[in-house]
């Protein structure tokens, strides 16, 4: 089991700073997602951990030991590339056996591990095919198998699901999660899909422009983003400027809203108020006076199958409300909205 630590790691390509002062602590056996938009430095981070790239500054430690001077081959890490990089001139078997074979394992040992791993990734019937004769999902599993057979102490995956269709994605997500839990291997994977990151990861590191914006559990990142950028990236739509009125009350263009006290907010401070679309309760009928009630009218409706998102006009503002699709409301309905204080999140702004 390997624990990974990045100590103020910085990476510069010429004059361009790709990663700036990155501190990251990954416990052994943990599954961490690096999440961020294209070009933010996710791949660069993986490449530094694997040793393909040297940090310009800072140190990378495995189990507390600096590995800066260690060659890629000696780090015993595994990495599944963004485009899989299967060797096109080798069969599935040869691809998967490549690692143990170059490490000089015995033929018998290689054969044993090969059979075992092909069974795990369900590729036994395809063992004599060439990569060009495989589907995307099969190629992906070959890439995973080729890495796992070397028993890496850290498994890294660069956008492992990006090239797969929706159904296969769900399947592979489950597959990766199960495998990771079964093997208990420290895993870092890269994605720019926040849903994927939340579903798979124990902790998510959100990176913008080479800076670590937030590193937390999926739930906390989703509910309590530390910055507007993170909130935005996690798909938040209802963000309104406001002012803290008292310890538990904030005023916005929507009206006054009850909230919980946040230690780092002081009375009178300007803030951004985040109301998650699915945390709002929408009802018709008499207006009860308790809590933070707001009146509005439905302007538009987006149907997503399991859920519906309504766009509600409210005090000259618009607010998105997501509800279960069991009950459908109509455009033009008068509604009122309430939100529990613990669902309100204040961002500095």
């Amino acid at each position: 089991m390997t624990q990974v630590r990045l100590n103020s790691v910085r990476k510069q390509f010429g004059n361009f700073v790709a990663i700036e002062n990155l501190d990251l602590d990954i416990s052994s056996g943990e599954l961490v997602a690096l999440l961020g938009p294209s070009g933010c430095g996710k791949t660069t981070t993986l490449r530094m951990i694997s040793g393909l790239e040297r940090p310009s500054n800072g140190a990378i430690l495995f189990n507390g030991k600096d590995v800066s001077e260690q060659a890629v081959q000696d780090r015993n890490v595994g990495m599944v590339f963004q485009r899989y990089a299967l060797f096109p001139h080798m069969t599935v078997e040869k691809n998967v056996a490549f690692g143990p074979s170059v490490r000089g394992e015995s033929k018998a040992e290689i054969a044993r591990r090969l059979d075992e791993i092909l069974e795990v990734v369900q590729l036994t019937p395809f063992r004599t095919r060439f990569p060009a004769q495989l589907s995307g999902g099969q190629m992906q599993r070959v890439a995973v198998a080729r890495t796992l057979i070397t028993k890496p102490s850290i498994l890294m995956m660069d956008e492992p699901l990006a090239n797969l269709d929706t159904k296969l994605r769900v399947e592979m997500r489950r597959f990766i999660r199960d495998l990771q839990q079964r093997l208990g291997i420290t895993t870092i994977f890269v994605t720019h899909d926040q849903i994927e990151a939340m579903e798979l990861a124990d902790r998510v590191a959100v990176i913008f422009d080479g800076h670590l914006a937030q590193y937390d559990t999926p739930e906390r990142i989703y509910r309590y983003p530390r910055s507007l950028d993170v909130a935005d990236f996690m798909g938040a739509t209802n963000i309104y400027p406001g002012k803290v009125l008292s310890r538990n009350r904030v005023s916005t263009a929507l009206g006054e809203i009850d909230c919980l006290h946040q230690d780092d907010r002081s009375v009178g401070e300007s803030v951004q108020v985040l109301l998650r679309a699915e945390a709002l309760d929408m009802s018709t009928g008499p207006f009860t006076s308790e809590g933070s009630g707001m009146r509005g009218r439905i302007k538009a409706r987006d149907f997503f199958g399991a859920s519906v998102t309504y766009r509600v006009a409210c005090n000259d503002q618009e607010i998105d409300v997501t509800e279960n699709a069991r009950r459908m409301r109509d455009v033009g309905d008068d509604v009122h909205l309430q939100i529990a204080p613990e669902q309100v999140w204040l961002l500095s702004g």
């Binding site: 694997s50 060797f87 490549f98």
Partner: peptide
């Protein structure tokens, strides 16, 4: 690079 990570010299 993949070959290198897999341990090839």
């Amino acid at each position: 690079e993949q070959a290198m990570i897999l341990g090839a010299r």
